[in-house]
Design a protein around this nucleic acid. Structure first.
Length: 118
RNA sequence: UGAGUAAGUCGGAUGAUCGCAUGUUCAUUUGAGCAUGAGGAAAGUCCGUGCUCCAUAGGGCAGGAUGCUGGAUAACGUCCAGUGGGGGCGACCCUAAGGCUAGUGCAACAGAAAUAUACCGCCUAACUCGUGUUAGGUAAGGGUGGAAAGGUGAGGUAAGAGCUCACCAGCAACUAGGCGACUAGUUGGCUCUGUAAACCCCAUCUGGAGCAAGACCAAGUAGGGACAUAAAAAGGUGGUUGCCCGCUGCCGUCCCAAUGGUAGGUCGCAUGAACCUAUUGGCAACGAUAGGUCAUAGAUAGAUGAUCAUCUAAAACAGAACACGGCUUACAGACUUACUCAUAUC
RNA sequence: CGGGGUGUGGCGCAGUUUGGGAGCGCGCGUGGUUUGGGACCAUGAGGUCGGAGGUUCAAAUCCUCUCACCCCGA
């Protein structure tokens, strides 16, 4: 997972929020959109409702680590934004990992799954 | 041993695997090695500075801030040493603490009366058999209130009253000590309600905005920029934080595909009112001199995480965003030093 | 990062400037009216004035600290 695989520009975030499809479970919300490139970019949004800056940083780092470890099995050509919900504060790393896997399967972004046309 | 007061320190550690940011060396397409990598409050943004820009920051008014004294400091609403007041047996702690005797305002309800007074009461005189009525004196006692015109005691009086005296409190002047806040003493007249975190007065300070400040490079897009004061300088029309004075642009001409500048990028950006050691001035805050240290966070969707093992067990509050000096607020647990009181023993 | 505002019965608000009685509308309870309901009439309950401290005789109001929410600028 290189620097180019990070979603950074505010303009790109706005595009995904506006035109992308959304999936959710009890811990996460995911926005996804085809970007027309040959690689996938991932961004993270942790809102102020989650907690103070220490809590927000910890959650963002954990999600980033989960995505980094499993990035090799994600399909190319998508912009993805992950937004944690408030109950993420109370769950541990393994539960968060299974929540991320669950939402990736819902959106069909793993390489052994079918096409997502979002 | 128990209870307490003050000051200060730490605030998870070590190892292994994967991964991040910056710097540097080697390779120079990918990459590899090494070093470093959040706090005591980084927080709140409550003050003060540095730094940057503003075409008016100049003068005056208004507004704002501070408010016992002396000192420290780049500066402060901070700190130190004192003074007065308050609390504690004590160690010690708290203190927006200038001026209502410059002026104005306000003081509900209760109460007779709220800055002036006579409801009950006390006393005297007249009238009445008498309960009492009328006129006058009084501020001791009662009741109301946060506050009723010094307090306590004695003398005095028809009853009373600083009316007189003693002590105490307060005020003014003088003398002595202290740089000063103030303290001590003497004398005097004889007493003055509270509120300035009410307007206000006095003393001191005060231009505004803020690193998303601002400087440089510069796609797209768009026409833009420079100079001058000639007939008149009067006038008109704009700008200049609330107002006035004052200051200033335009009411002309010329030039240019370059100029200005958005997205984006580079800088600002970390060597600083820095830290350590020694000597030295000062009660202290703090300073002076000499030597030494510095890659020791510097991002821009924003770097510290995940798993395992051991200690003892998972640890509190909490994450730099230009920097610094303070204040305030949050904080599991552990520890150090000095002092006070009580009890017991020697 | 900077600037500004709000917090008062269950809900929406006034009162804060100039300190002394805590109020208004809707809603709620009870009674009346109606064959019954609505509307209407009468009456009643319900508030630590976001929290803590201070000034004052007295604080929703003045001052300081603090918490939550909302809006604006770049």
């Amino acid at each position: 997972m290189d620097e180019k695989n990070r979603l950074k520009k505010n303009e790109d975030f706005k595009k995904v929020y506006k035109y992308g499809k959304s999936y959710y479970n009890r811990n996460l919300v995911m926005y996804i959109k085809k970007n027309g490139l040959d690689y996938t970019r991932v961004g993270f949004t942790v809102t102020k409702k989650i907690g103070n800056s220490v809590v927000r940083n910890k959650i963002r780092r954990r999600i980033k680590e989960i995505v980094r470890q499993n990035f090799i099995s994600v399909k190319e050509g998508y912009d993805i934004i992950l937004v944690p919900k408030k109950n993420v504060v109370d769950i541990n790393f393994q539960e968060l990992e299974s929540a991320v896997f669950h939402i990736f399967k819902l959106a069909h972004v793993f390489k052994n799954q079918g096409e997502n046309n979002g």
